[in-house]
Design a protein around this nucleic acid. Sequence first.
DNA 1: GTGAAAGCGCTAACAG
DNA 2: CTGTTAGCGCTTTCAC
Lengths: 347, 347
Amino acid sequence: MERDKVSIYRIAEEAGVSPATVSRVLTQKANVSDEKKKKVEKLISKYHFSPNAMARGLTSSRSGIIGVLIPDIRNPFYAGLAVECEQAAHDRDYSLMLSNYMNDMELEEQRLYKMISQQIDALIIMGGRVDELITDEVYAERINHISKLMPVVITGKLDGSDCYQVNLDNSEAIDRIMEYLISNGHHDICMIGGRKEVDSTYTKRTRYRSMLHRHGIEFCPDYLVETGDYSMESGYRGMNSLIESTRKLPSAVIAINDLTALGIIQSLREHSIGIPEDISLVSFDNTILAETSVPRLTSMDYNYDQYGKTLIDTALAVLEGGKPQKIQIIPTELIIRDSCRSLNKGI
Amino acid sequence: MERDKVSIYRIAEEAGVSPATVSRVLTQKANVSDEKKKKVEKLISKYHFSPNAMARGLTSSRSGIIGVLIPDIRNPFYAGLAVECEQAAHDRDYSLMLSNYMNDMELEEQRLYKMISQQIDALIIMGGRVDELITDEVYAERINHISKLMPVVITGKLDGSDCYQVNLDNSEAIDRIMEYLISNGHHDICMIGGRKEVDSTYTKRTRYRSMLHRHGIEFCPDYLVETGDYSMESGYRGMNSLIESTRKLPSAVIAINDLTALGIIQSLREHSIGIPEDISLVSFDNTILAETSVPRLTSMDYNYDQYGKTLIDTALAVLEGGKPQKIQIIPTELIIRDSCRSLNKGI
DNA sequence: GTGAAAGCGCTAACAG
DNA sequence: CTGTTAGCGCTTTCAC
């Protein structure tokens, strides 16, 4: 397969100028006479020429590519975020290189080093080990090493590392959900799903308890259902076990995310428990699943647009020598749909 | 931000050999004495060194990146396919560069040329204009031009172009669904969703009619509901209009994809029509939505693994000078879940 | 088996 | 304002 042999030399020759001049009109960094500029631009558009990014990168030691390490793009949460990142990157004339690591540590490492050898200019790490409550020290050290080579921005936390963090406001998220439920007359509130070693889940559970306390509601251990993960199946399992084990069903259930909520819906349906007539359901992430489920889910939305943009902008700011804030927080907003009802005044 | 300055020169110096020798152990293409080889390998792993892909690419005119133009990664169908492609690419030691074009022609062009300037080695185009029944000639010409520079593999068709095609077996897919429904006693079968100018939809509709004919079932125009797109909302709209306009409801509905099926479910629910008690529902694509919906959808699955692998392998085969088949077909399999019932023997 | 040297396409001094 | 020149880091002849 023959590559196109158009280069600045070819353009230069046909335009009767030097390669440097062509480069100058390409980079727009130096002045070129109108006459030559026009000639060159004509050739450029004639050949649909765009400079070889590898050659360019060799001199500038910039590839124009931002690497993104992502758990699984099939998860609607990450898919949405990835799209926003791509948008933000392209706005700044950068390309994105996505790598799914499928929660496989070995795969993560492989893909990471592959991206580094592709000379990515910056790295964004989502989920996985940067979400753990207790940082893996070996991992932190490795990431630290990388963050000496390029900007590293993560969506979670990594103790003792130099990474920049952009985090969802998990505290605000759970507080708002609790306030919403309580103000609608719910007292028996249950929380299903997740793994306690995950930072965001830990935060949610802690605030859940303190919100109960603040409103004078006694904490019931049965109502905090650990399932170990974030899948639909885990929601199904968690809800089933709650129904079987408890004497008194809660009036409201908080699912750790939309996928888990779908499993909860399935369990409730099989037990002929109506949503929201018998039990109200809220969840986190406001993915497409919240919109497509029956009933449509009331779910905690984040400003995904801002999230993606902040991730990219932070990486590029560091790349350009800036000093953005080490931790930035993305705001939340509860999207109210059809899965919750009010217990007040018999509505 | 300082890049790591480790290069083959540094390795060479420390190992007391020439840069060429380091290159030789890196590429494994020439013989190097065991002694020197070991020395070099030690340094390589000491520094976690991996050669600069841009420099390498400059000489080999290969970037090791395959570009993928995709409509929207948030669509579970494309997300699943992208994951398979990534897997297949990494197995061959290639990276993937994904670009979402959001069904925006202008964006598609921008991202395409951006990827070309990033020196992608091959291009895979999914959906969008390569799915159109009637090829846009200007577009075909552009793609043709690109396919002179690099292998281009598409998931649809493009008349008069040199692209390689990897297609789902849409004929088999609709045939199997029709046979399944008819063998379960369904005669009044309706098909909802899509746009007739889309190649795969056109095929499905044509075969739908000929299957009816073959089984001596009269074609009812009301039962072919064009909605113009593939969204959930379109299914909702299509089903609503069918319910309002027809005297006799069908016993089975075929949705053009899972998303459309979800809209149909919502419409049926609002009309208190039970699935599958009153109406059976089948759809295409077998995405995660088929598994997470209530009831779980009977849906046409494709061998996504093979699909992704074939896409990548075809591109790389062409790149290496091979001559794969111009058109390759991916088989289908109906996954039976809870959304259809049999009308036979009063089951 | 191994080193020296040229060159991939581009940018960035450096002269003029 | 513009041409010449020297690399960027790697692979690949070509001698030895």
